Each structure stands twice: as C-alpha cells, then as structure tokens.
Measured scan of single mutants.
Amino acid sequence: EEEEKKKEEIARLLGVSKEDVERILKKNNLDIEQLLRRVQREN
C-alpha cells in the first residue's frame, strides 16, 4: 500500500521505526504527505 511505503520512507530518512512514524503522525495530527515533504526538505 502506498501509505505504508511512505511511512517506511519517512522512518528510513529519520532513522526511526515505522511505529515511531505513526506516533509522530498521531501526536502532531499531520497527514503522511505533509510529514514526508517536511522530512525530504530537511534531508
């Protein structure tokens, strides 16, 4: 699934687990696209 791939990509870029990414998304109330763009910009 596309969303899972995005979570895995974010996890890889941040050096965290996919579960961490899911927690970040919930905690910050971000959607996956916003987080992915933010992470890609910083790297």
Rank of each mutant, 00 (worst) to 15 (best):
residue 2 E to T: 12
residue 37 R to C: 08
residue 38 R to L: 15
residue 37 R to S: 13
residue 13 L to E: 03
residue 24 I to C: 08
residue 38 R to P: 02
residue 37 R to K: 15
residue 15 G to C: 06
residue 4 E to A: 08
residue 11 A to L: 01
residue 32 I to F: 03
residue 18 K to I: 14
residue 18 K to L: 13
residue 30 L to T: 07
residue 38 R to V: 15
residue 39 V to A: 11
residue 34 Q to I: 08
residue 6 K to S: 06
residue 28 N to H: 15
residue 1 E to H: 11
residue 15 G to H: 09
residue 21 V to A: 01
residue 10 I to P: 00
residue 42 E to R: 01
residue 40 Q to K: 09
residue 29 N to E: 06
residue 43 N to E: 09
residue 13 L to F: 06
residue 25 L to R: 02
residue 1 E to T: 12
residue 27 K to M: 13
residue 24 I to A: 03
residue 25 L to C: 06
residue 10 I to S: 01
residue 13 L to K: 05
residue 21 V to S: 00
residue 12 R to T: 08
residue 26 K to Q: 12
residue 4 E to N: 10
residue 28 N to S: 14
residue 24 I to W: 08
residue 25 L to Q: 02
residue 18 K to V: 13
residue 42 E to F: 07
residue 15 G to Q: 08
residue 1 E to N: 13
residue 20 D to G: 04
residue 6 K to Y: 09
residue 8 E to C: 03
residue 11 A to Y: 01
residue 15 G to N: 10
residue 28 N to T: 15
residue 42 E to V: 08
residue 19 E to P: 06
residue 23 R to C: 13
residue 15 G to P: 00
residue 26 K to P: 00
residue 24 I to D: 02
residue 30 L to Q: 05
residue 41 R to T: 11
residue 33 E to A: 05
residue 28 N to V: 08
residue 22 E to G: 04
residue 19 E to H: 09
residue 27 K to S: 11
residue 26 K to C: 11
residue 21 V to P: 00
residue 1 E to C: 05
residue 20 D to N: 07
residue 3 E to I: 14
residue 5 K to T: 09
residue 21 V to R: 00
residue 32 I to W: 04
residue 39 V to P: 03
residue 2 E to D: 12
residue 28 N to Y: 15
residue 38 R to T: 14
residue 2 E to A: 11
residue 33 E to M: 05
residue 18 K to C: 07
residue 1 E to D: 12
residue 3 E to P: 07
residue 7 K to E: 02
residue 33 E to V: 04
residue 23 R to W: 13
residue 12 R to P: 00
residue 4 E to L: 09
residue 11 A to M: 08
residue 42 E to K: 02
residue 35 L to F: 09
residue 29 N to L: 06
residue 29 N to Y: 06
residue 19 E to M: 12
residue 32 I to M: 05
residue 17 S to F: 04
residue 7 K to Q: 03
residue 24 I to P: 00
residue 29 N to Q: 09
residue 16 V to T: 06
residue 14 L to I: 05
residue 2 E to L: 09
residue 23 R to G: 08
residue 14 L to S: 01
residue 31 D to G: 08
residue 36 L to T: 02
residue 1 E to M: 13
residue 43 N to A: 13
residue 33 E to W: 06
residue 41 R to L: 11
residue 30 L to F: 09
residue 17 S to V: 04
residue 15 G to A: 05
residue 28 N to R: 03
residue 9 E to P: 00
residue 11 A to T: 02
residue 26 K to R: 13
residue 38 R to M: 15
residue 24 I to K: 02
residue 28 N to C: 14
residue 43 N to Q: 15
residue 11 A to K: 01
residue 12 R to Y: 10
residue 36 L to Q: 02
residue 6 K to Q: 11
residue 40 Q to V: 06
residue 36 L to G: 01
residue 32 I to G: 02
residue 25 L to K: 02
residue 3 E to G: 10
residue 19 E to F: 10
residue 2 E to W: 12
residue 29 N to A: 06
residue 17 S to H: 07
residue 33 E to H: 08
residue 35 L to H: 01
residue 42 E to N: 08
residue 16 V to W: 06
residue 36 L to N: 01
residue 13 L to S: 03
residue 3 E to Q: 12
residue 26 K to T: 11
residue 22 E to P: 02
residue 34 Q to W: 10
residue 19 E to R: 12
residue 3 E to W: 07
residue 1 E to K: 12
residue 39 V to M: 04
residue 26 K to H: 10
residue 43 N to R: 04
residue 42 E to P: 08
residue 40 Q to G: 04
residue 24 I to F: 08
residue 15 G to F: 04
residue 21 V to F: 02
residue 33 E to T: 05
residue 12 R to A: 09
residue 18 K to Q: 06
residue 26 K to N: 08
residue 10 I to R: 00
residue 13 L to V: 06
residue 6 K to V: 12
residue 31 D to I: 03
residue 8 E to P: 00
residue 12 R to V: 08
residue 12 R to D: 04
residue 16 V to R: 03
residue 39 V to G: 01
residue 32 I to T: 12
residue 35 L to D: 00
residue 9 E to A: 09
residue 22 E to A: 06
residue 35 L to S: 00
residue 11 A to H: 01
residue 40 Q to D: 04
residue 17 S to W: 03
residue 25 L to Y: 01
residue 18 K to G: 04
residue 24 I to L: 11
residue 29 N to D: 09
residue 1 E to G: 11
residue 39 V to H: 03
residue 40 Q to M: 09
residue 25 L to E: 00
residue 5 K to R: 14
residue 26 K to S: 10
residue 1 E to S: 13
residue 18 K to A: 06
residue 33 E to Q: 05
residue 23 R to E: 13
residue 6 K to C: 09
residue 14 L to Y: 03
residue 31 D to K: 07
residue 25 L to I: 09
residue 5 K to N: 11
residue 7 K to L: 10
residue 14 L to G: 00
residue 26 K to D: 08
residue 33 E to I: 04
residue 5 K to H: 10
residue 2 E to H: 09
residue 27 K to L: 14
residue 25 L to D: 00
residue 8 E to W: 12
residue 37 R to P: 01
residue 5 K to P: 04
residue 5 K to A: 14
residue 2 E to C: 06
residue 41 R to P: 04
residue 26 K to A: 12
residue 7 K to S: 02
residue 6 K to L: 14
residue 25 L to A: 10
residue 20 D to W: 14
residue 40 Q to S: 05
residue 24 I to E: 04
residue 9 E to Q: 13
residue 34 Q to H: 05
residue 41 R to G: 14
residue 39 V to F: 04
residue 40 Q to F: 04
residue 9 E to L: 15
residue 14 L to K: 01
residue 3 E to M: 13
residue 32 I to R: 01
residue 35 L to T: 02
residue 4 E to I: 08
residue 32 I to E: 03
residue 21 V to Q: 00
residue 9 E to K: 10
residue 29 N to W: 04
residue 23 R to L: 14
residue 31 D to T: 15
residue 21 V to C: 00
residue 38 R to H: 15
residue 40 Q to T: 07
residue 20 D to I: 14
residue 17 S to T: 14
residue 24 I to N: 01
residue 7 K to C: 05
residue 39 V to C: 09
residue 18 K to N: 05
residue 27 K to N: 12
residue 24 I to Y: 10
residue 9 E to C: 09
residue 34 Q to G: 09
residue 40 Q to I: 09
residue 39 V to L: 15
residue 31 D to N: 11
residue 9 E to T: 13
residue 14 L to V: 02
residue 28 N to Q: 12
residue 14 L to C: 06
residue 22 E to R: 02
residue 27 K to C: 09
residue 20 D to L: 10
residue 19 E to V: 10
residue 41 R to W: 07
residue 14 L to H: 01
residue 29 N to R: 09
residue 37 R to L: 15
residue 20 D to Y: 13
residue 29 N to K: 09
residue 18 K to F: 07
residue 18 K to E: 04
residue 11 A to P: 00
residue 20 D to Q: 13
residue 10 I to V: 15
residue 31 D to A: 06
residue 38 R to E: 15
residue 5 K to L: 13
residue 6 K to N: 07
residue 32 I to V: 15
residue 15 G to D: 04
residue 41 R to E: 15
residue 35 L to M: 05
residue 9 E to V: 11
residue 4 E to F: 05
residue 18 K to M: 11
residue 33 E to F: 04
residue 16 V to S: 03
residue 36 L to I: 04
residue 39 V to K: 01
residue 30 L to N: 05
residue 18 K to W: 06
residue 32 I to P: 13
residue 22 E to N: 11
residue 1 E to P: 12
residue 36 L to K: 02
residue 3 E to K: 10
residue 27 K to W: 10
residue 35 L to E: 02
residue 42 E to S: 06
residue 19 E to W: 11
residue 15 G to K: 09
residue 17 S to N: 07
residue 13 L to Y: 07
residue 36 L to S: 02
residue 23 R to F: 11
residue 7 K to P: 01
residue 26 K to L: 13
residue 4 E to R: 07
residue 33 E to C: 07
residue 16 V to N: 02
residue 22 E to D: 12
residue 6 K to A: 11
residue 23 R to V: 14
residue 42 E to C: 15
residue 40 Q to L: 13
residue 25 L to G: 01
residue 9 E to Y: 14
residue 13 L to D: 01
residue 29 N to F: 07
residue 29 N to M: 07
residue 27 K to A: 14
residue 4 E to W: 06
residue 29 N to S: 08
residue 35 L to K: 00
residue 21 V to L: 03
residue 20 D to K: 10
residue 5 K to V: 11
residue 10 I to K: 00
residue 37 R to T: 12
residue 17 S to G: 07
residue 2 E to S: 11
residue 22 E to I: 06
residue 7 K to I: 11
residue 12 R to Q: 08
residue 14 L to N: 00
residue 17 S to Y: 04
residue 18 K to R: 09
residue 21 V to H: 00
residue 28 N to G: 11
residue 25 L to N: 00
residue 34 Q to S: 12
residue 5 K to F: 11
residue 19 E to S: 10
residue 37 R to W: 08
residue 2 E to R: 07
residue 13 L to W: 07
residue 8 E to Q: 12
residue 17 S to I: 03
residue 23 R to D: 13
residue 8 E to G: 10
residue 4 E to H: 07
residue 13 L to C: 03
residue 36 L to F: 07
residue 24 I to H: 04
residue 32 I to H: 02
residue 37 R to F: 07
residue 42 E to M: 08
residue 38 R to C: 09
residue 6 K to P: 02
residue 19 E to Q: 12
residue 38 R to W: 15
residue 11 A to E: 01
residue 35 L to P: 00
residue 23 R to A: 13
residue 7 K to F: 06
residue 11 A to Q: 03
residue 35 L to R: 00
residue 3 E to F: 13
residue 27 K to P: 01
residue 34 Q to A: 13
residue 20 D to A: 13
residue 16 V to Y: 03
residue 36 L to M: 06
residue 5 K to D: 09
residue 5 K to Q: 12
residue 34 Q to D: 14
residue 23 R to M: 13
residue 9 E to N: 05
residue 41 R to M: 14
residue 8 E to F: 09
residue 29 N to I: 04
residue 38 R to Q: 15
residue 32 I to K: 01
residue 37 R to Y: 09
residue 16 V to D: 00
residue 8 E to M: 14
residue 22 E to M: 08
residue 6 K to R: 05
residue 23 R to S: 11
residue 35 L to I: 02
residue 29 N to C: 10
residue 15 G to M: 06
residue 40 Q to Y: 06
residue 40 Q to A: 04
residue 19 E to G: 10
residue 4 E to K: 07
residue 31 D to E: 08
residue 32 I to C: 05
residue 13 L to P: 00
residue 19 E to A: 14
residue 43 N to S: 12
residue 42 E to Q: 11
residue 4 E to T: 09
residue 13 L to N: 02
residue 24 I to M: 11
residue 34 Q to K: 06
residue 25 L to W: 01
residue 27 K to Q: 14
